[in-house]
């Protein structure tokens, strides 16, 4: 449980050598050691989705993922998804649709959508709702979030 060995993986394109004891939730490594702001602590229980990241392209809850679970994997967080200069289509869409109030859940909405749209690039509205229904939003921004994911899907299709 507490065995120490270096765990190697890639985060946002950079190699990481993580020396934390196995059993450490990945979220704390990403936030506190790599100083990434995207993944958020929401519940620590995998219930709300605020901490979502991509592990080998799959939307994953980093609060219940341990550092050793991502050994040799490629991790992408919102921080590495795009930038002001070169935004990901979903980031542009969330701004265009003003799909945030407090915005705390937005990381999870965007990252879950990236993972989902990779599997289904032309989703129906119902499929989008289903895909993010386990990501909680408390401000009631749901309608805008769905509109943003729709717009992002189109944007991603145009890019590819």
């Amino acid at each position: 449980m507490m065995a120490k060995s270096t765990i190697n993986f890639i985060v946002n394109g950079s190699k990481c050598e993580c020396d934390l004891p196995s059993g450490t939730p990945l979220l704390y490594y990403l936030r506190n050691d790599l100083e990434l702001n995207g993944p958020k602590f929401g519940c620590g229980l995998g219930q709300c989705g605020a901490c979502t990241i991509l592990v080998n392209g799959v939307a994953t809850r980093s609060c219940i993922t341990l550092v050793e679970d991502v050994s040799d994997a490629e991790v992408i967080t919102l921080d590495g998804l795009g930038s002001r200069e070169d935004p990901h289509p979903l980031q542009s869409a969330f701004i265009d649709q003003q799909a945030a109030q407090c915005g705390y859940c937005m990381n999870g909405m965007i990252m879950t959508a990236v993972g989902f749209l990779a599997k289904n690039s032309t989703p129906t509205e119902g499929e989008i709702k289903e895909a993010v229904s386990a990501n909680l939003c408390r401000c009631g921004t749901h309608q805008r979030i769905i509109a943003a994911i729709k717009q992002g899907a189109k944007g991603m299709a145009n890019e590819s």
Binding site: N37, K40, G82, R84, Q98
Partner: peptide, 16 residues
């Protein structure tokens, strides 16, 4: 007008 605080949140720039 687009809210001024949203881009900082979308690009994970440490808004919180």
């Amino acid at each position: 007008m687009g809210r001024l605080d949203i881009p900082c949140k979308v690009f994970a720039e440490g808004a919180y």
